[in-house]
């Protein structure tokens, strides 16, 4: 069970939240190539380690926000607003 610290409501069980997938995927501007549309729609970094992802507190305040979570230990390293850039960690966060 993840305990996710909602920025508005505090820590709640994962069952109150809806997952929004990988964060910081920018929609290509203007007339984009097939390649960049493919990247946008389908290709994911899917890294092992610190994973930047979106969650919505669907059964609470209904706010969307970003989470930086270690997807091996499930430790939540940071919570930040949708319009903030991703926090960087000293240990890099990536695993093999």
């Amino acid at each position: 069970m993840l305990r996710i610290p909602c920025p508005c409501c505090g820590p709640r069980d994962e069952t109150e939240f809806v997952y929004g997938g990988e964060s910081h995927i920018a929609r290509p501007a203007g007339a984009a190539s097939d390649r960049s549309w493919t990247d946008y729609l389908y290709v994911r970094r899917n890294v092992k380690g610190i994973f930047y992802e979106r969650w919505q507190h669907a059964r609470g305040c209904r706010q969307w926000f970003n989470v930086a979570r270690d997807n091996v230990t499930h430790e939540i390293r940071g919570v930040y607003r949708m319009d903030e850039s991703r926090p960087v960690f000293d240990d890099g966060g990536e695993r093999l």
Partner: peptide, 18 residues
Amino acid sequence: GHSSVLAAKAGLRLPIVS
């Protein structure tokens, strides 16, 4: 499940989520 991790080391990005 580790396809993205290893493919990235060969410079390849995949449409996969684990």
